[in-house]
Design a protein around this nucleic acid. Structure first.
Lengths: 121, 121
DNA sequence: ATAATATATAAGAAAATAGTTATATACTTG
DNA sequence: CAAGTATATAACTATTTTCTTATATATTAT
């Protein structure tokens, strides 16, 4: 689990229209023009949201004629969410992106310049 | 599962510093002044991120003297992630926030003004 | 080939986000 | 009570996000 990957996925999930698109695509695939109709926003808006979802690996596309049908990569999403839960449980040493922060934590433990932790909690 | 709640949680998770804070708080609780030291950003920045996490129900605070210690609500977070996965599997009829969109999907099925779906896929 | 349709990308504007410094509030200590 | 420390909030700024309209590209139909 990499912080940057998690940030990208959660950012993609953190917008109501994209969440609704995902909730729909969980049911069946839709093409851009259908999503445009369904949500009543402009076609570029739909395309741009789908691009963000695609860059987060949450959807995939299938081009059929002049249409592009999008579907949810449910397996990947579910695996990602499970991995994130596991990541949280893992010890700090296993959290590669927090090397620097872990060093500072150790430093604080040894030399508590702030007085908030008189005895180990 | 409500779209608005999910949006708030995912938005809170969709920022690298907040993700790192969460990853640390998963290990043990920290007070604001420690997080400030650990991450090397200003105290208001930490406070503001913690407020966003608190409003998403992801952390809770315990005031001890003049310090405020924050801890991760891991149970809530994990339950939320599981609920979100279940939500995606649930049928469209069960997705309360998508009433309007479901109506439009039905409308499209009955009267396909777009030609992208010649036969039911 | 031309026109029509579907999608993606570009450009620009309004709003939201994430940081800063300054200040207010609360608690602790002398 | 006064001074010092910790935290929260306010005000401001730079950046990012999210939409729009305009345009480019690709496919289909006449």
């Amino acid at each position: 689990m990499q912080i940057k990957e998690a940030e990208k996925v959660f950012k993609a999930l953190g917008q109501s229209l994209r969440l609704k698109i995902i909730a729909l695509l969980a049911e069946q695939e839709f093409c851009v023009c259908e999503l445009e109709e369904i949500f009543g926003v402009s076609q570029p808006a739909i395309s741009q949201h789908l691009r963000i979802l695609k860059e987060a690996d949450l959807v995939e596309e299938e081009k059929i004629g002049q249409w592009v049908f999008y579907s949810l990569k449910r397996e990947y999403l579910e695996e990602f969410l499970r991995d994130f839960s596991s990541y949280l449980i893992s010890p700090l040493e296993a959290k590669k992106d927090l090397e620097q922060e872990r060093a500072r934590v150790k430093q604080l433990e040894q030399n508590p310049k702030v007085t908030c932790r008189p005895l180990p909690r």
